[in-house]
């Protein structure tokens, strides 16, 4: 029973950690499927985390915060698209530039506006945060041994953005693989000149893809600062944008496998927290750093072709130049 509770709690923690990863990874999925490297996920998320917390603190509404977060991330996405698609700049450099710029800009503006040493004020008021929703009967069900706990901890008890992230997987799978827009988007990432020949604008499609990725990063960032914690702190994404990119690659640029990768990576994270200093039978204490490095090691192994194969969209990273 004790072990069972422990496992359920571990899985619940996994869901909480996986949510921003999943949102960012699906964001990256749209961008990369259209042929634009998604290296700016980290920066777009961080930017959204800052403005959503700032707006939520000032206005008292988490929903306004969400809007602000999405607007910020979309604005950054627009900048990326302007650099990478319109001016055919280097996509890796553009992504790094946004990541570095935002890493400095968030704390700078926070200091100037709130004077709290680079943080936003604590979100304490009612409605300033996205709080856990408790499904009907969750508290009562907790006393029912096995399925009750599962219901109370895994299905119920998360905030709205978690459910949004979960719904996003089938939605994005449908959009990418069952709609005309999705077909075109994937085509533009594989063979842009063919799309161009068919009379469809490569630039327009790539802009749309990058802007969608911005909007989703906006939700991911808002989750970090107004749902998972109560306010913005410096570097609060802590590499989650890069981890999401790894999950996207580990998921072979497909929605459901990407969900699996996010859950796996989040599980290692939750496990690392849980196993800190705990001696396991046979192996003893596993250093927490090794567990935390596992997602990166797994991704490298996958890229190396030791764990299946990952085939990137063919035109990824290549700016498209229309022939005259």
């Amino acid at each position: 029973m004790e072990t069972y509770t422990l496992i359920v709690l571990l899985l619940a923690a996994t869901i909480r950690v996986a949510t921003p990863l999943l949102l960012a990874a699906i964001a990256g999925l749209f961008s990369e499927r259209s042929g634009v490297i998604a290296l700016g996920l980290e920066g777009m998320m961080l930017g959204a985390a800052f403005t959503s917390a700032a707006v939520a603190a000032v206005s008292g509404s988490a929903w306004l915060g969400l809007v602000a977060g999405i607007v910020t991330a979309v604005a950054l996405a627009l900048l990326l698209a302007f650099a990478c698609v319109t001016h055919r700049g280097n996509q890796v450099v553009a992504g790094m530039a946004v990541n570095i710029m935002v890493a400095g800009l968030g704390p700078s503006l926070a200091l100037a506006w709130f004077n709290l040493g680079g943080q936003t004020p604590q979100l304490e008021g009612v409605g300033q945060r996205f709080l856990a929703l408790h499904w009907p009967g969750a508290e009562a069900a907790r006393s029912v041994p096995l399925p009750g706990l599962l219901y109370a901890e895994l299905l119920s008890g998360h905030n709205l953005l978690v459910y949004f992230a979960a719904a996003l997987v089938p939605i994005s799978a449908w959009v990418l693989f069952r709609t005309r827009f999705g077909l075109r988007l994937r085509a533009v990432g594989e063979n842009p000149s063919a799309v161009d020949t068919a009379g469809i604008s490569v630039t327009r499609l790539r802009y749309q893809a990058v802007l969608i990725s911005g909007a989703l990063c906006g939700v991911a960032g808002t989750y970090l600062s107004t749902a998972a914690s109560s306010g913005f702190v410096r570097d609060m994404t802590a590499g989650k944008g890069y981890l999401a990119l790894a999950a996207l690659i580990f998921g072979k640029w497909k929605p459901y496998p990407t969900l699996g990768a996010c859950l796996l990576f989040a599980f290692t994270d939750a496990l690392a927290t849980r196993l800190q200093g705990v001696a396991l039978p046979l192996v003893g204490v596993i250093p927490v750093q090794f567990i935390l490095a596992l997602p990166y090691v797994l991704t490298v192994l996958l890229l190396a072709g030791f764990v299946g194969t990952a085939v990137a969209p063919k035109a990824i990273g290549v700016p498209y130049a229309k022939e005259k």
Binding site: G89, V93, A97
Partner: peptide
């Protein structure tokens, strides 16, 4: 911030 802007303008843009 300035570093990021320099990378942005000298590299990406």
């Amino acid at each position: 911030v300035i570093q990021g802007l320099v990378i942005l303008f000298c590299g990406a843009l």
